[in-house]
Design a protein around this nucleic acid. Structure first.
Lengths: 256, 256
DNA sequence: CACTGCAAAAATGTATGACAAATCTCCCGG
DNA sequence: CCGGGAGATTTGTCATACATTTTTGCAGTG
């Protein structure tokens, strides 16, 4: 009737609150397609049993997923997975789940495409609109990349760099993309970073962006960012090639 | 001490659930700046009294706001308003609250700028990538605009039109912008729509976009969208001028 | 036979009270 | 002066009961 012990097997989340763990699990499963749009989620009572938690926790998890546009709950009906186009793919959590669920190369390609649309224009705007403080933030991030001792530090500075540019563009609606870039760079880092010894070669490309922004040359900034993204695109393409080649030989070996 | 009756005065929300109403109210107040980033929200017990609801409802509202990145709750601390750059401005609700809180012309200008970055590229991608089904959706929306009997119908079709293009671009990460455009057009509609008798004059501009996409001419599609947005920009600029002029004379009269 | 309307059922929504856990604050002792 | 422990405050979780909503089906009626 009532299970002896929790018996919960939340993926890898140890700490954080229960409702958060439940939300993470259900959210990830939705993005994975385990629950498809239009499907009905198990009702609250069942989820309580499944996760070994109280209804309160389950309900709070549901509210979070509702807030992200993933589900819609109605009395007597249950919680139905919403159509994909009402999902908040630009939400931090949702994007992470999506990233974990989707084909890696496809995900990175989509991401790269959006970056290719937004970032050049953001840099152009930043060139025109930046305040002294914002310029300092960008230059600070560049210094961070220059002085980075290892790949981790470099990556952190890299993220800061792009965020600073978005911020300097002076349009609040552009800022939320920061985390998207953050996620893109983070995901790339996990793969390309390892066997790519010659990071730093991208440093001049970043420097060129700063120079253009500092001189308030919009078109130059745009081009500089395009150059950087083209370089990133090459890395991605190469990695995708290697990946698809290796996929046949070792499919489960990579999990060690 | 203890108020006699609910005494709740949720803005204008009558139906929908309690936690939703509470979330709407607190969310709107945060976006309005009534609670600034770093501030502590009233604790749950106080909110219960303030809204005349149970702690359950308040907590579920908090979870929704947490999911949208507006607040962060921790035991013994309370619920603290997060820094602006962790807000999910691209979330439907958050954007609506932002729209209601910010200066209208400023909001529309930001929106227009983002549209100017995204939509031309989306149309270019749509020209290259569209499937027959997606093209039909775009053309269907255009027909809807052509046959629109009044401004309301026209606006609905207009929204569908832009959504269909975003969809046809073939990048899932672009779809979430649909609602942003939806909101932009909706807000504009509330203002420009009234005294602008000659809607329809934008019809040829829309038609040109469809033609370019149908012929799979990316650059032509890009330009056509830019032309449309330039036109929209003119309307906005004119409205902004009128608005700022009228603001001195009649500040509250315009509400009739 | 079809249609209307009412009633029961099933799910979420709300309320309440109790306790657990986290963590800040302050005080006390070394 | 510093560190550690006790207490207090606030959120986190649980359990239970009841309210509300909406579908479904049955019954009664034309």
């Amino acid at each position: 009737m009532k299970q002896i012990r929790p018996a919960v097997r939340i993926a890898a989340v140890r700490k954080s609150s229960l409702h958060h763990q439940v939300a993470q699990d259900i959210g990830a499963r939705i993005l994975k397609g385990e629950f498809a749009p239009g499907d009905l989620l198990p009702n609250e009572a069942e989820s309580c049993r499944a996760y070994g938690v109280s209804r309160t926790a389950v309900r709070e998890a549901m509210k979070m997923l509702t807030a992200k546009g993933l589900i819609l709950s109605r009395p007597k009906i249950g919680s139905r997975v919403q159509p994909r186009d009402s999902w908040n793919l630009l939400d931090r959590d949702v994007l992470v789940w999506y990233c974990a669920a989707a084909e890696r190369s496809h995900f990175l390609a989509s991401m790269h495409q959006v970056r290719g649309i937004l970032e050049p224009e953001a840099a152009a705007l930043a060139a025109v609109n930046h305040t002294p403080e914002q310029l300092r933030a960008i230059e600070g991030a560049l210094v961070g990349m220059r002085d980075a001792a290892d790949l981790v530090q470099w990556n952190n500075a890299d993220v800061k760099f792009h965020l600073a540019i978005l911020w300097a563009a002076g349009n609040e609606l552009l800022v939320p993309f920061g985390f998207l870039i953050e996620s893109a760079l983070g995901t790339m880092f996990d793969f390309t970073g390892r066997h790519n010894q010659d990071w730093r070669k991208a440093y001049p490309l970043h420097e060129a962006i700063v120079v253009a922004i500092r001189k308030r040359r919009a078109e130059a900034a745009r081009k500089a960012v395009r150059a950087l993204l083209a370089d990133t695109g090459n890395v991605l393409a190469q990695w995708a090639r290697e990946s698809s080649r290796g996929k046949r030989q070792a499919r489960s070996k990579a999990r060690r």
